[in-house]
Design a protein around this nucleic acid. Structure first.
Lengths: 365, 365
DNA sequence: TTGAAAGCGCTAACAG
DNA sequence: CTGTTAGCGCTTTCAA
């Protein structure tokens, strides 16, 4: 960061006269020789306005590229036409982490929100501060909230839901929970993945992930139950907690290796974690999948392109994102919404030794 | 996607009575036995209000967890306290792509925007539709725009800037450009990367990237000039266009290999592209870096964890993001802003054969 | 120090 | 079919 940035040519001149052109509804009305109300009606497609009048107004609107001020409109109509997405993990350790899984989900949410003609406010409010989430709607900035990942915010989310605030969260379904969630079947997904590893003849399987996160806890249950089904006793030494960041996973895996525990497979709670784990393994001269088989979770785009290609539990971000949005709009409209748990799919590629070809794409779809 | 989602328990009840609690400034005023104006003044920290009164008001505000409606406030004050980030590439081929580089940048932008006390609207408007970008501010939804990547929108961006609209774009500095950009020194970055490859003894270097994108065109210039400096004539057969998506890069690389051209190195225009290229190479039994050295661009987090670890040109998203925001606020405040070009840094790791250790971290920082 | 009144730009009754 | 009249919730002169 040494050199100091090189500044170069630029713009600037019409700075102040920016909003100058701001033509408003009254102006259009005057020009069309009608009242503001008529313009408003014409623009909102009301049937009670003369076709000829409407055309005249329309023309004026186009030629002056007038747009109604949604801020004023919202103030009057009582809504904002925007919804907020809160990504807790954007905050892990005070610096933005970037798990590709979330961007994929975010992308689909953005699509769905746009389809509804709404805007999307991206908020950095962490899950610790659910009051901040409440502010977003109390303050009239958004009509509803989508939280990606409940992690430590469970209680706060409960409170928001109790207040009747439109809210949907991506995450796990907890026992007594009163807010709506969308998420994949973490338990079943993990169980299937671990069963697959066992089917490959692996017996000493590492669990790589932090169980304080609800979803991860469920995955751990799946892990345990798959082991149990094969008559394997979980070894506490193979339960390795790690955060979602690459560096954290790398460190965790390295110390496991250094610890000298023996193992022949790793179930990682995200693809990013899996990739870092493989990195650590290979640095120690261990071969994947020959010496250690690895399975990830998420099926991010890069999973298929890693070396070796990653066996992983796919979470369907496309339908997940859309569902999140649909359920939120249902709530906003006052309709009831119920949580849904999406099925997962195990995508077998090279890293688990289950497929010999390089890039395997799942059968379905 | 077969099974059909399993619906489960849920919430719902206080749906309608949601906004019920919506206490407004008038209510607080009444309770405090003062007028709306006084409350407004007290809340905005005006010095012309009795300390005792202010305290009383403050107490009421807290106990009722009242928040001023920013929508109404903005309408009155003439601003929105929110800025929009438009990500064109979110749209490539009608499905959200997820280049981690953009999320990293977005994360930093989000940080900086939050530091200014502003909200961040994430928009999916593509670069083809700059009129849509204009709407965001014409319509009173945001105070200014940050566009990530100018790609095909150059003309449209020019027009917006000419209208005096607060706007900053992440991208390349084009010749006669009138809008403000922040971006890395693409030409120098690429040049250094390719020179490094040449220094490793490579002579036939593939250029992997689409030159229709301004930044990429500059990188190509850097590529050519590095070759020229070594007395190497660029071979058109080694100029391989590809989009930023993993799949596209994979395909491009595969057909290059199938085409039978000989080459011993690849300069990829993004890390995601580099990763896919390596994948294609290895699928054909070619070893990286032994047979083919590869250099990427961006230094996304995963670059250090790939196998082999990626040599790449780092773009500093942290200062980039902050600069983008600072320059935008300068414009909003009516101050002049000039484009800035950030220096880049070559991070040498294993994929180029320049480093033997696994995960090498750059010297600086 | 505080209140009254006039809007910000728009929509929604309520009369024509 | 169209105009008038009130506001949505807040800030800001202008007076007191």
């Amino acid at each position: 960061m040494a050199d100091k940035p090189a500044a170069t040519a630029a713009t600037q001149e019409g700075q102040a006269r920016a909003k100058m052109g701001a033509v408003k509804m009254d102006d259009i009305a005057r020009m069309a020789g009608v009242s503001k109300s008529t313009v408003s009606r014409a623009l909102s497609g009301s049937p009670l306005v003369n076709e000829e009048t409407r055309a005249r107004i329309q023309a004026l609107v186009e030629s002056h590229s007038y747009r109604v001020d949604t801020r004023a409109q919202g103030l009057r109509k009582g809504h904002t036409h925007t919804i907020a997405v809160v990504i807790p993990l954007l905050h892990e350790h005070d610096q933005p982490i970037s798990d590709p899984f979330f961007l994929e989900l975010l992308g689909h949410i953005a699509d769905a929100v746009a389809d509804h003609g709404y805007d999307l406010l991206l908020s950095k409010i962490g899950p610790g501060r659910t009051d901040g989430m409440a502010d977003l709607v109390d303050t009239g900035r958004v009509d509803g909230l989508i939280a990606i990942g409940q992690s430590t915010a469970h209680l706060g989310l409960e409170r928001l839901a109790a207040r009747g605030m439109p809210l949907v969260v991506w995450g796990a379904q907890l026992p007594e929970q009163h807010y709506v969630t969308v998420g994949s079947d973490n338990r079943a997904g993990a169980e299937r993945a671990v069963a697959h590893l066992i089917a490959q003849g692996r017996q000493r399987i590492v669990f790589l992930g932090q169980r304080t996160v609800p979803e991860i806890r469920l995955r751990h249950e799946g892990y345990v139950s798959a082991l149990a089904a094969a008559g394997i006793e979980p070894d506490p030494a193979l339960d390795v907690p790690t955060r979602f960041a690459s560096a954290a996973a790398l460190t965790a895996m390295r110390s496991l290796i250094a610890g000298g525990s023996s193992f022949d497979a790793v179930f990682a709670c995200s693809d990013v974690i899996a990739i870092s784990a493989i990195r650590a393994l290979q640095d120690q001269g261990l071969k994947v999948p020959e010496d250690v088989a690895v399975v990830g979770y998420d099926d991010i785009q890069m999973a298929a392109f890693y070396n070796p290609a990653l066996t992983t539990v796919r979470q369907d971000t496309a339908t997940g994102g859309r569902l999140l949005v649909d359920l939120l709009f249902a709530q906003i409209a006052g309709r009831a919404a119920r949580s849904v748990m999406l099925p997962t799919e195990l995508v077998v590629r090279a890293s688990s030794g289950g497929a010999l070809s390089g890039t395997t794409t799942p059968g379905s779809r």
